[in-house]
């Protein structure tokens, strides 16, 4: 549904070039939710603005539903609804007027428009505020209104730039649920976030971006497989004293096993996969009595921190 190939974008900030995107490619299938995960300044909003036709890439291509965006093509824009990172509301107009204006630009009118407004105001708990001016709403509610607008219309693609910023957890849960529903009804969703747990909970595909470059991408499973931070083997020993610890370390050194101790727990890692880990276990268990063992999957968080070099949250 969404194809992005090799996008480059350099800003000119007071004569100094800032390379915001350095060859970004990704692809999202129909009905999928792709999470673009990255720390502040990674280039997420730049990608969103390019896909939303607000700014132009220096090079590279993108298309949605087979339509490439060229020369301000409306056909392309008919495919998308966008929630930008910065709030964009008519602050001096009421919630109702904000929704009406948005709907009209998307060709809704009469009964259909009113029905759409009713649907989203109920969904996002905005009904009590229908006649309040947007500027009177709290930050969280403004965000809801902004997102609610895009739920009024039925574009094939929904693009949301850090929609959960400043949202309370309950509403966030609702939003996640609604996004899932939209995806199930066939809408394709691109969402950016700095929060790993959101990407983990919501997205079919995750793309980790940092410094304008994609560091890793795939499903959660694939990502775990791709990263060098593989599964870890944890071994617990009985009555582990200094001497025993030293002996285990020396032994592992001889055998070429990568281990470290965290308290009285031995952590063994091996990039070659689970069989290699188990082979390491066998070698250690040959010599020392192991009380218990477990194999841990790396969390996305571990991976994210590794990928972005600790720069992320």
């Amino acid at each position: 549904m969404i194809e992005v190939r090799n996008l480059y974008k350099t800003y000119n900030a007071k004569g100094k070039p800032v390379e915001a995107l350095k060859g970004v490619s990704l692809s999202i299938k129909e009905g999928q939710i792709l999470g673009l995960l990255g720390p502040n300044g990674a280039g997420k909003s730049t990608l969103v603005k390019i896909l939303s036709t607000i700014i132009k890439q220096d090079s590279g291509e993108f298309e949605i539903d087979g339509i490439a965006y060229q020369n301000n093509s409306e056909a392309y824009r008919r495919k998308i609804a966008v929630v930008l990172q910065n709030s964009s509301l008519e602050l001096w107009l009421s919630v109702l007027e904000n929704l009406r204006i948005y709907g009209k630009f998307f060709g809704l009118k009469g009964q259909a428009l009113e029905a759409a407004i009713k649907k989203v105001t109920e969904m996002f708990g905005l009904t009590p505020f229908l006649h309040k001016q947007a500027r009177e709403l709290s930050g969280g509610y403004r965000k809801r209104l902004q997102i609610a607008k895009t739920f009024m219309v039925e574009t094939k693609v929904l693009i949301l730039d850090e929609p959960t910023e400043g949202m309370d957890p309950l509403v966030k849960n609702d939003l996640m649920k609604y996004l899932r529903q939209e995806a199930q009804s066939g809408r394709t969703i691109l969402i950016t976030t700095q929060r790993i747990e959101e990407a983990e909970a919501l997205c079919d595909e995750i793309v980790i971006i940092n410094n304008g470059k994609i560091e890793a991408q795939g499903s959660l499973m694939e990502l775990r497989r791709q990263t060098a931070l593989n599964k870890r083997l944890l071994l617990h020993f009985n009555a582990l004293d200094k001497h025993k610890l030293k002996a285990i370390e020396d032994y592992c050194g001889e055998k070429g096993l990568r281990v470290s101790f965290s308290g009285s727990t031995l952590v063994h890692t091996n990039d070659a996969g689970i069989d290699a880990l188990l082979e390491g276990y066998r070698q250690i268990a040959d010599r020392f009595e192991v009380e218990s063992m477990e194999i841990l999957n790396p969390s996305l968080e571990d991976m994210f921190i590794k990928v972005v070099g600790g720069g992320g949250k």
Binding site: S52, I54, N72, E74, I80, V82, N86, S88, F105, G107
Partner: peptide
């Protein structure tokens, strides 16, 4: 910016 994304000329 948001208006730039609307499906109109």
């Amino acid at each position: 910016e948001e208006m730039m994304t609307y499906p109109v000329n």
